[in-house]
Simulated scan of single mutants.
Amino acid sequence: MPTATDAQSEPYEIGVGDTVSVHVWRNPELSQTIVVRPDGNISMPLTGDVIAEGKRPEELASEIRVALSELVRSPEVTVMVVNPASKEYRNRVRITGQVEAPQSVAFQPGMTVLDLVLLAGGLTDFAADGRATLNRQVDGEYKTFGLDLGELISEGNMDFNHVLQPGDVISVPRKQIFRGEL
């Protein structure tokens, strides 16, 4: 199981729905506050559409500076994220399946598997607690890690009480009941 990283230390990437303020020094007519469109672009005077999604603010500023340099002498561009709306969805943790109340909640540093299970009201009687999984994005792709929630909740085995990261999803499958079992 990978260890948790401090999500606050990672550089912010602009996302759809974020509001960015683009300031072009000594060119107030080119400065504006813009919402990133669903296609990931912003529209700027003189440059047209510029892809903003997935870029750090300084990367976007550099790209706008290069585009404007063909029309404006030595443009100085600053980009600030003034409303990080996309972060609300990226920085969530989720629990699905056989819990009393499946949840998607805002990530809080230090949040653990047990915290999320308790927020979801605990497991249902039909939960296959030994087959639960934690799905986490690692190096751009989702990895699945086994969780024994029965050991964690009933036995207090903290080996399964992992610290969560933004984007984590806990899945609790249903028990398989075979005919003839009572």
Score class of each variant (00 low, 15 high):
12 Y>S: 03
12 Y>D: 02
12 Y>W: 07
12 Y>F: 14
13 E>M: 09
13 E>A: 09
14 I>K: 02
15 G>H: 00
15 G>S: 03
16 V>S: 01
16 V>M: 00
16 V>E: 08
17 G>P: 02
17 G>C: 06
17 G>I: 02
18 D>I: 02
18 D>A: 06
18 D>Q: 03
18 D>N: 06
19 T>L: 10
19 T>R: 12
19 T>M: 11
19 T>Q: 14
20 V>H: 04
20 V>N: 03
20 V>C: 00
20 V>K: 07
21 S>G: 06
21 S>E: 10
22 V>E: 01
22 V>H: 03
23 H>V: 14
23 H>A: 05
23 H>F: 08
24 V>M: 05
25 W>I: 09
25 W>T: 08
25 W>M: 08
25 W>D: 08
25 W>F: 11
26 R>M: 10
27 N>C: 04
28 P>Q: 15
28 P>C: 02
28 P>Y: 01
28 P>G: 06
29 E>L: 09
29 E>I: 02
29 E>K: 08
30 L>V: 03
30 L>R: 03
30 L>G: 01
30 L>D: 06
30 L>K: 03
31 S>G: 10
31 S>I: 01
31 S>H: 07
32 Q>K: 11
32 Q>H: 00
32 Q>P: 01
33 T>H: 06
33 T>D: 12
33 T>M: 07
34 I>L: 14
34 I>N: 04
34 I>F: 02
34 I>S: 05
34 I>D: 05
34 I>P: 02
35 V>W: 04
35 V>R: 15
35 V>L: 09
35 V>C: 00
35 V>F: 05
36 V>N: 07
36 V>D: 12
36 V>P: 10
37 R>D: 14
37 R>Q: 15
38 P>H: 13
38 P>S: 07
39 D>A: 12
39 D>L: 12
40 G>P: 14
40 G>C: 10
40 G>I: 10
41 N>G: 10
41 N>E: 10
41 N>R: 11
42 I>K: 12
42 I>W: 13
42 I>V: 15
42 I>D: 07
42 I>F: 11
43 S>L: 13
43 S>V: 12
44 M>C: 06
44 M>A: 03
44 M>F: 13
44 M>D: 15
44 M>N: 04
44 M>H: 07
44 M>T: 14
44 M>Y: 09
45 P>V: 03
45 P>A: 08
45 P>K: 09
45 P>T: 01
45 P>E: 05
46 L>S: 11
46 L>C: 09
46 L>A: 05
46 L>Q: 11
46 L>Y: 04
47 T>P: 01
48 G>D: 14
48 G>A: 13
48 G>F: 05
49 D>A: 14
49 D>G: 08
50 V>R: 04
50 V>Q: 15
50 V>S: 03
51 I>Y: 08
51 I>D: 01
51 I>F: 07
51 I>H: 09
51 I>T: 10
51 I>G: 11
52 A>W: 12
52 A>K: 04
52 A>V: 00
52 A>T: 08
52 A>C: 06
52 A>M: 11
53 E>V: 15
54 G>S: 12
54 G>H: 13
54 G>P: 14
55 K>A: 12
55 K>Q: 10
55 K>N: 07
55 K>T: 11
56 R>M: 13
56 R>A: 14
57 P>D: 13
58 E>S: 11
58 E>G: 02
